[in-house]
Simulated assay, not measured.
Amino acid sequence: MASRPVFVALGDPQHLVQEISIDFPWSPGFAPVQKKKNVSALHEAARKKGLYPILEVSTKSEAKLGQRLSAFNLKIETEVGAISIESAFQGSKVFKNGGPYTDIYKMDSRSAKRDERLKNSGPLTGFDYFGQKWPLIPKTAFYDWLYLTALEPHQEFLKRLYSYAAFSDIEFNPDKSINCQARTCALMVSLIKLGSLNLALRSQSDFIAMVASDSFNQAHSADLLQRQLL
């Protein structure tokens, strides 16, 4: 058995996203077919708890929408052209002993995530995105802002997200990572429910103010010690 979270958009200003842990039978292995078995098992277990339908947001999704919304595939427009969310996030990391490594912006998503400098530059201290500095706390703020900024122009995607009861990412393990594309999709829907998306994206300070309370309600903020973001 394994346990993975699914994320529900609450539309509550103080608690935008609910994380629900689901136990399900795990199929070991790294082959894509095994990953898809796990997605199906997770969704079936969640359905029994009344959570249906669920969108898997990853390259392993059976739904084209879920694949398109993977941080590996979703792109953000920048001054150096369109780059993936994954490359933008990794290339903006600042460490005690180096960074940001902005050449990562032009790498493909997999290469960006695996760049050795991200592991050998000491503790993460913040983010620098084209000169805009982002703090480590609220813990998911920079990743969420990047993702929502990239997703907001795709109005056809936003309408379709509304039809889902929850979102999952089979690759996300909360014991090892903090940021999750499925959680950010739930955050997007929650902000839309509140009519606050445009306000949240108006400025960095507005965004942080909007998500701060919710961030401290999440499991990853049980303590304020920033883990290495993966």
Rank of each mutant, 00 (worst) to 15 (best):
L187F: 04
L146Q: 11
Y147M: 04
A165T: 12
C185L: 06
I178A: 11
L148A: 03
Y164C: 00
S163K: 13
I178D: 09
D175C: 03
R160F: 08
T149L: 09
K193P: 00
L151S: 02
Q155A: 14
D144K: 11
L187C: 03
L197A: 06
Q155D: 15
L158K: 11
D144Y: 12
K176H: 11
S190Q: 02
N179S: 11
Q181S: 12
Q181C: 12
S163R: 14
A200V: 06
F157A: 14
K193D: 01
M188H: 11
N173Y: 04
P174T: 07
A200P: 04
Y164V: 00
R183G: 04
D169G: 00
K159S: 15
L148Y: 03
Y147C: 02
E171H: 10
S163A: 15
V189P: 06
F172K: 01
S168M: 08
L191I: 08
K176S: 11
Y147S: 02
F172I: 02
L148T: 01
I178Q: 09
R160L: 13
A165F: 12
S163I: 13
Y143V: 04
A165R: 14
F157T: 14
A182W: 06
A186S: 12
F172V: 04
H154L: 12
F172T: 01
F142C: 11
A165V: 06
M188Q: 10
Y162H: 15
A182T: 08
K159I: 14
F157Q: 12
K176F: 11
A200W: 05
V189R: 05
L201K: 03
D175L: 10
G195H: 05
E171V: 09
D144R: 11
N173C: 05
F157R: 12
I178F: 10
R160K: 15
Y162V: 13
D175W: 04
N179M: 07
L146S: 12
A165I: 07
